[in-house]
């Protein structure tokens, strides 16, 4: 053991403080989370089949409704219900699709309501296309330019479950003029409960062609 007195010297203090400051600056200013956390966003439009690796997704129809009539309950919109019909086709294993969120042009976010047979999440397996209808209660000024974000990871906790995972963002294609018309229309929609997607049985003209595409796509294509 060495005996003797060491001094706290200016140079030693400056060295330590400088190192701590430099470390703090690195942690604070380097964009360390970017690239590690960001989801893989697959963009598309209604009718297009999107490959999310774990599933193929098609937004088959976009509607609005003031009233949703389900088998057990009827729901009246506070704003208007943005009704988004989709088909999911899992490609690897049984998958729960927990993420469904609408984002408007101002960046506000809206979550679906599981009212009147509308889905808040869907579970399906490979081997078939599964139909689900999401209903979002949104204000009038959210319609124009709205996009829907669908994924297997839930959107709660700032999209924590979607980190580094594929996420579909579909532009619903609502123009400002169309938004006015959609808002004024007093539609009653009877959302179909989730089920096997049978082409031709849907109510959307756009849905038929795109669902057909899904079955000829590269389902299970990681062979």
């Amino acid at each position: 053991m060495r005996h003797g007195r060491r001094r706290i010297t200016w140079s030693g203090t400056a060295l330590v403080l400088g190192a701590v400051t430099a470390g703090c600056a690195l942690v604070t200013y380097l964009p360390q989370d970017q690239g590690l956390d960001t989801p893989v966003v697959v963009e598309g439009v209604p009718g297009e089949t999107l490959d999310l690796t774990y599933a193929e997704l098609t937004v088959t129809d976009v509607r609005v409704a003031d009233t949703l009539e389900g088998t057990t309950e009827t729901a009246v919109a506070g704003g208007t219900f943005l009704v988004v019909d989709v088909t999911w086709r899992a490609t690897r294993t049984q998958t729960t699709f927990a993420g469904a969120e609408v984002t408007d042009s101002q960046g506000r976010r809206f979550w679906p309501s599981a009212l009147g047979d509308c889905a808040a999440s869907a579970t399906s397996q490979p081997g078939y296309a599964w139909r689900a209808t999401y209903c979002f209660d949104v204000p009038e000024d959210a319609l124009a330019g709205a996009t829907v974000r669908l994924a297997r990871g839930s959107q709660s906790e700032e999209h924590a479950e979607q980190r580094r995972d594929a996420v579909a963002v579909v532009d619903l294609g609502i123009t400002a003029g169309a938004a006015r018309t959609l808002w004024d229309a007093a539609e009653t929609v009877r959302p179909e409960p989730q089920g096997f997607a049978v082409p031709g049985a849907g109510d959307a003209a756009t849905g038929d062609a795109s669902t057909g595409d899904a079955s000829t796509g590269d389902a299970g294509g990681d062979a």
Binding site: R2, G4, R5, R6
Partner: peptide
């Protein structure tokens, strides 16, 4: 190289001591 570590045996008291440490020639 300076260091912040002092010996286990404390220095002479807590008073301000401007002299170099005893073992330092």
């Amino acid at each position: 190289m300076t260091t912040l570590v002092t010996p286990a045996v404390p220095g002479p008291g807590g008073e301000q001591d401007e002299r170099p440490a005893p073992s330092l020639p």
